[in-house]
Structures are given as C-alpha cells and as structure tokens.
Amino acid sequence: MFAQASGKAWNKDAWKKPMKAAAAAAGLPAGTVLYTLLHSTITDLVVGGLDLLTVAQLSGTCVEMIEKHYGHLRADHAAEALAKLAL
C-alpha cells in the first residue's frame, strides 16, 4: 500500500532503522518497536469506542482478529447499549 521514499516496497527489515529514528525523535524508550505502537494504537481505538470494523480496516487486518485479541476491552459495550434502550 505504501512505498519507501526510494519507491521500493516495505519489507520486514526495511522499517527497522526508520522506526528507531522516529522513536528516538519522539523521545520514546529505546526498546520501542513498531508492534508496541500498533498494539497501543489498536488498544486506544477499541477502548475509545471506535467500531471494530473501522479499527480492523485502519490496522490492515480482519474484524475476527480484532475481536479475538481486543474484544475483551469492550466487554461493557453490550451493557451500555442495553442501558440506552427505553424498554
């Protein structure tokens, strides 16, 4: 989907140095890796209430994966929805 500045496709090794440089520039701990930022972002989006389809689309994965690994963070969602209904 995204290409490097050189026009080449990203691969598993191409992002390591740019990621370390970006983490250092942002003042993040030296051990920060891309997966940490991905997991943190997905967690924040799910806890923040963004629908799981949109989270999956933004993170380039499927709803099933988001539900499996992050769905527990929205355990209160059904209760909140029911509480809003006027029965």
Rank of each mutant, 00 (worst) to 15 (best):
A3Y: 05
Q4A: 09
Q4I: 01
A5D: 08
S6R: 05
G7W: 09
G7Q: 10
G7R: 11
K8R: 15
K8V: 03
A9C: 03
W10E: 05
N11M: 05
N11H: 12
N11A: 02
K12N: 13
K12P: 06
K12M: 08
D13S: 08
D13V: 01
D13Q: 05
D13N: 11
A14H: 10
A14Y: 04
A14W: 07
A14P: 00
A14M: 01
W15S: 13
W15D: 10
K16I: 15
P18Q: 12
P18E: 12
M19S: 10
M19L: 07
M19I: 01
M19N: 04
K20Q: 13
K20G: 06
A21P: 00
A22Q: 02
A22L: 07
A22R: 02
A22C: 06
A23L: 08
A23Y: 12
A24P: 01
A24C: 03
A24H: 09
A25N: 03
A26T: 02
G27V: 01
L28F: 05
L28T: 03
P29Q: 08
P29D: 11
P29G: 12
P29H: 10
A30G: 01
A30H: 07
A30Q: 07
T32N: 05
L34G: 09
L34R: 05
Y35H: 15
T36V: 03
L37A: 13
L38C: 14
L38R: 15
H39Q: 12
H39F: 06
H39A: 13
S40E: 14
S40W: 11
S40D: 14
I42L: 12
I42K: 05
I42A: 12
T43S: 15
D44M: 11
D44S: 07
D44G: 05
D44F: 10
V46D: 00
V46N: 02
V46S: 02
V47A: 12
V47H: 06
V47L: 15
G48H: 08
G48Y: 01
G48T: 07
G49L: 14
G49T: 11
L50C: 13
D51A: 08
D51E: 12
L52R: 09
T54R: 14
T54A: 13
A56L: 11
L58E: 03
L58T: 10
S59A: 15
S59D: 09
G60A: 04
G60Y: 03
T61G: 11
C62K: 12
C62E: 08
V63H: 06
M65L: 10
M65K: 09
M65N: 10
I66N: 04
E67W: 00
E67M: 05
E67A: 09
E67P: 00
K68G: 01
K68L: 13
K68H: 14
H69P: 01
H69L: 07
Y70K: 06
Y70R: 04
Y70C: 11
Y70P: 04
G71W: 01
G71A: 09
H72T: 06
H72S: 14
H72F: 10
L73K: 06
L73F: 09
A75Y: 04
A75H: 07
D76Y: 06
H77S: 11
A78P: 00
A78K: 14
A79M: 14
E80Y: 08
A81W: 02
A81G: 03
A81D: 01
L82S: 03
L82F: 14
L82D: 02
A83E: 14
K84L: 13
K84Y: 00
A86M: 02
